[in-house]
Design a protein around this nucleic acid. Structure first.
Lengths: 235, 235
DNA sequence: TAGATTTGCTTAGAGGCATTAAGCAAACAT
DNA sequence: ATGTTTGCTTAATGCCTCTAAGCAAATCTA
């Protein structure tokens, strides 16, 4: 599975990569997104600017790699919250996962904002970059639990006949991409929950509702209650 | 009310300002946010870079002014949809306003994304900038209608005693800032609706759900149905 | 172990951007 | 007619991204 003993060079390189990530993150957190430049990161490490190009092909790739790292960290925080309650009822585990998501976002607002609205424009997103794969893993962590829930204790879903035909078509396609683990109408419920959760966090962390709220934890909890109701997890 | 005849100079200046906005917008739409630079805008107008500083103090102020213009345009589209149905029932007018919001966002994704996640970081937001005032007016347009609805045909609200105390406190403060036009528990309903609507649009326009949806119009309509139910506008 | 290769880094540009400073000429006001 | 304001210019500083050329040490290879 894993490679043999990494060579000394490989270890040094890995350490440098980690330092690059750490410095980039520090710049982002302390001085904002605009301060994250190739030159600044290199300077902060006591290197000359172009040296960084031996590690990343350019600014965009650096940003992508660091963002992927943030996503991984967020994903792992959620997985850990889930696994720490391996024997708890599925409802508890799901809620714990969601709360871990918000906890991470609130504890690391700069990083979360960076994930959501990184300076890398959508058209530049290469389909197989580390960033994209990390995003998929992130999206799947809730999907996994909802799919498991669906398998063991199906939740109420709308009648497909009541859904907009165009929507149903899209849901069918999505249902296929997730290996049919959720039928279209259950996928619809899952996606609604996902959009509500993720959307709420983005609103909060990106300061779109500061005009009314200073602490959105109760609002988030209310959102979780609605999710629980939709997934048939009451009591 | 309005000033006297503007001098020739004033007219020319105004025309230049409009051209600046138009060129900036074109750059944003055709080449992305990164292409919106002071130099590029000036060059596109056949000017030298520093000339633009006679109109805006710098990049940030330019971006703020253009963003304010976008918000104004969006707001006006919503107001127009509302006023075109002056005699329709409040429910229809509210729905038309929301649909106009999405229609503008979908027709102008670059501009909407720019509004939501402009490169100007939150700490730089001066409280009395044109950008901020435009944002307030935008937020108020739905508030106005919901407040009017509350006045004429109150919708169901949760019992304040059931709300989290911290949340209730925040809602009280917000209720005051809007002149008490909605009591805290009604403000809570309004803010929930606002977050759902705005959050959904941000998810859509910023491509956060592309992995599942190609056309979110049915999803948006479903969201509107839920809003209608919450505001007691069925039938 | 000697020679060839790879790796990590350097400095030196080229070209772009934000911004300030200094200055010129036309438009305007008195 | 004269002085001021306005719209613009070029020059220059200092930052950024990224490429090119090259040096020296680590590593691989024969």
């Amino acid at each position: 599975m894993t490679a043999k003993t990494p060579s000394r060079r490989e270890r040094l390189r890995q350490a440098t990569l980690e330092e690059i990530h750490a410095v980039t993150r520090r710049l982002l957190v302390t001085q904002g997104p605009a301060a994250v430049t190739v030159n600044a990161v290199a300077r902060e490490m006591g290197m000359s600017g172009p040296a960084l190009y031996h590690y990343y092909a350019g600014h965009e790739e650096l940003v992508g790699a660091v963002t992927a790292g943030f996503l991984r960290e967020l994903t792992e925080a959620m997985e850990q919250a889930r696994d720490a309650r391996a024997d708890a009822p599925p409802a508890d585990r799901l809620l714990a996962t969601c709360r871990a998501m918000r906890a991470w976002a609130v504890a690391h607002p700069a990083e979360f904002g960076w994930i959501f609205a990184s300076p890398v424009a959508p058209p530049d997103r290469h389909p197989d970059s580390p960033r994209q794969r990390a995003g998929q893993r992130f999206e799947q962590i809730l999907l996994d639990q909802v799919a498991e829930l669906w398998r063991t204790r199906p939740f109420p879903v709308p009648d497909p006949a009541d859904l907009d035909p165009s929507l149903l078509e899209q849901l069918r396609a999505y249902s296929e991409t997730i290996g049919g683990r959720l039928p279209p109408e259950a996928a619809h419920v899952f996606l609604s929950c996902w959009i509500r959760l993720y959307g709420l966090l983005c609103m909060e962390v990106l300061h779109q509702v500061d005009f009314a709220y200073s602490d959105m934890e109760p609002v988030f909890e209310e959102c979780l209650s609605e999710l629980r109701a939709r997934l048939g997890l009451e009591g």
